[in-house]
């Protein structure tokens, strides 16, 4: 475990905390894409299939349980909670799941390290995580003003990606570890998706303005 990986995990955790804060205290999920949240729940469900069979560390197990539990509870809140679901911006959150899920699954069937159920699903989760933010970014573009918590939520998610990529580069040079090029590609695509958002995030921060993404 290096500092980049740990910082990445913590910013990932922060993004979830920010989102839960919004849902629990303000009882609002305005500006949050249910599509993206459902995709993340699917990402964690397919990636952590080995959670009870392969033990890595207590840290890993606990974090996996947190990511699984929070992602499914967020989906539950947005769909079922009597107040929270009313704030869901359904009309603007129109991106279709299967445009992302289907290509990712087909790609995982073709490009994987081993053709086994678990390996294919693990690869699928990587591909899907890379693009799962897209419905959220589309929704941000359609929103007139992005509130602080939503902006910070996406910021922390992007930061998590950035730190993970640095961690990969670090591990590449310091450990006897390598990754398949498909893993690198998925990781780079995922991080690159945030570049545009970061530009406008810092711009609004610098100018002390409300965050707004050009359509």
């Amino acid at each position: 475990m290096n500092i980049f990986r740990l910082t990445g995990d913590l910013t990932h955790l922060m993004s979830i905390i920010v989102l839960l804060l919004k849902i629990h205290t303000i009882k609002s999920c305005a500006g949050i894409s249910l599509k993206t949240q459902e995709l993340y729940a699917l990402v964690f469900a397919t990636r952590y299939l080995d959670i009870f069979t392969t033990y890595i560390s207590l840290y890993n197990t606990v974090m996996k349980l947190i990511f699984l539990g929070t992602s499914f509870s967020i989906v539950w809140y947005m769909r079922r909670h009597k107040t929270v679901r009313l704030s869901y911006d359904k009309n603007n959150d129109t991106f279709r799941h299967y445009f992302l899920v289907l290509p990712c699954f087909l790609l995982a069937l073709v490009l994987n390290n081993r053709f086994t159920v678990r390996e294919v699903l693990w690869t699928f989760s990587l591909y899907l995580e890379a693009v799962a933010i897209i419905p959220q970014l589309v929704l941000l573009q359609r929103s007139k003003n992005v509130d602080n918590l939503t902006g910070n939520y996406v910021f922390f998610l992007g930061a998590y990606r950035g730190f993970y990529l640095i961690n990969w580069i670090y591990r590449y040079f310091t450990e006897n570890h390598y990754r398949r090029w498909i893993t690198w590609m998925a990781g780079i695509v995922q991080t690159a998706l945030y570049v545009d958002f970061f530009y406008y995030y810092f711009k609004s921060w610098k100018n002390n303005e409300k965050l707004k993404l050009p359509a």
Partner: peptide, 10 residues
């Protein structure tokens, strides 16, 4: 060659 895509990450 053993496959190596790290699964110790989250």
């Amino acid at each position: 060659v053993e496959e190596n895509d790290t699964k110790d990450e989250l």
